[in-house]
Amino acid sequence: MRKLFTHHPFFIRLFHWEYWSFTAIYGWIYPVFTLLCIRAGGKFFFTAANPTIKYGGFLMEQKQDIYPLLPNGYYPLFFHVPAQTSFTQIEELLQQHQFTFPLIAKPVIGMQGKAVKKINNVDELKHYAAICTVDFMVQELSPYTKEVGIFYHRIPGEANGRITGIVAKEPMTVEGDGVSTLYELIMNVPRYILQIDALKQMYGKDILQVLKKGEVKVLAPYGNHARGSKFIDRTEKADATFVASIDAVCQQIDGFHYGRLDVMYNDWEDLQQGKNFHIIELNGAGSDPTHMYDPKHTLLFAWKEIIKHWFILWRISKKNHAKGHRYMTIKEAVAMFKSNAAHVKQLDAVALKL
């Protein structure tokens, strides 16, 4: 009976707010955001936060426009593939950029890791290109293996930026016992049960394989909460050295004042010193303070963090607005949300075919 409550998807979600929908988490505090919009003259203020990024990085920003803003050497190389590009052209781009497998393919307008896939060979890339109905990019696989999200902001006019959150991302991982199938190992972990449909699709018949005793397998190489990764709050690691190193990098990103860096690295001391890491995503005004998703945190903690960051976002936007950067009108915002909803449907359709 106890397992019914701890391992049934309905109860896993019910008793763990981190799995609730966006609306279920944010809906209770929308009035705060509405109040900030009213204070901005009845407009959506967030677009002024990061003037060089479309919509301030709230929604519908394109990765191929953001990566060039980053300092050289701080991100994996990539090339952009418009939808319906022939595979012959894609192969030419592979040769031109001298890319070797494995690679990462992902939509240029992303959402919660949807339709992101590790590509191991030409056939897999050909399949991805055939089913992907949106523009995507092919990117070198970062050589680094650990991932953190770093929430950064700098008030315009202030000399130094700040870090208000660090989240470590633990991908879904199982260890074999020499007896249980991969499916059985997955079903023993409540967090992984919520991903079982995607894992069945990913592994096919291989989900019935038996791992050797002590064999460790990473089920999915994506540091995304919506795709099963566990988020651990490591904000306490934001010491003066770390903040100064990240601030030095972020101040080289033109027009970037607020958002989250998703970073791959191997050694914390190197990262702390600002060395040997890749920024694999730069998220702007729409960034969640993802350290709040640590299972140890309450929903009340999450609400406090969200509201705190909304006020920071409002302050930054107000400062930039005073410099001439415009706010988004309600009409423009409605069009943006409609475009985003349509795009998400496309991503979901692509993800189902992967």
Rank of each mutant, 00 (worst) to 15 (best):
Y265E: 08
V263C: 09
V263T: 15
T235P: 00
F242S: 06
D239S: 05
E269M: 11
D270P: 01
G259K: 08
A238S: 09
H257N: 13
D247W: 08
H257E: 01
S229Q: 07
I246C: 09
T241S: 09
L271R: 05
V249Q: 07
D270I: 05
A238R: 04
I253L: 09
V263H: 11
D262R: 10
Q251K: 14
Y258T: 06
L271H: 08
A244Q: 13
G255L: 12
F231R: 04
Q251D: 01
Q251I: 02
I246S: 06
D233W: 02
I232E: 01
Q272M: 10
H257A: 02
D233P: 00
F256A: 13
K237I: 00
W268I: 02
K230W: 08
M264G: 06
N266M: 10
S229C: 14
A244I: 01
H257R: 01
S245Y: 02
Q251F: 04
V263L: 12
S229H: 06
A240L: 07
V263F: 13
F256P: 03
D270M: 10
T241W: 00
S245W: 02
I246L: 10
F242V: 07
R234H: 11
Y258M: 07
K230D: 09
D267H: 14
I253V: 15
W268R: 03
N266V: 11
A244G: 03
D247G: 06
V243Y: 05
D233A: 03
S245E: 00
E236R: 04
D270L: 10
N266A: 13
Q272S: 14
Q272H: 15
Y258N: 09
V263I: 15
A244R: 12
M264P: 01
V249E: 05
F256T: 12
C250M: 14
F256H: 12
D267R: 14
S229V: 04
Y258R: 04
I246R: 08
G255F: 12
K230E: 13
F242G: 04
D239W: 06
Y265W: 09
M264A: 15
I232H: 08
R234I: 00
Q272V: 05
F231K: 04
A240W: 00
V249W: 11
V243F: 04
I232R: 10
Q273Y: 07
D239G: 02
H257Y: 15
A244K: 14
Q252Y: 09
A238N: 02
A240H: 08
T235W: 02
R234P: 00
L271N: 05
S245A: 15
F256D: 07
E236N: 05
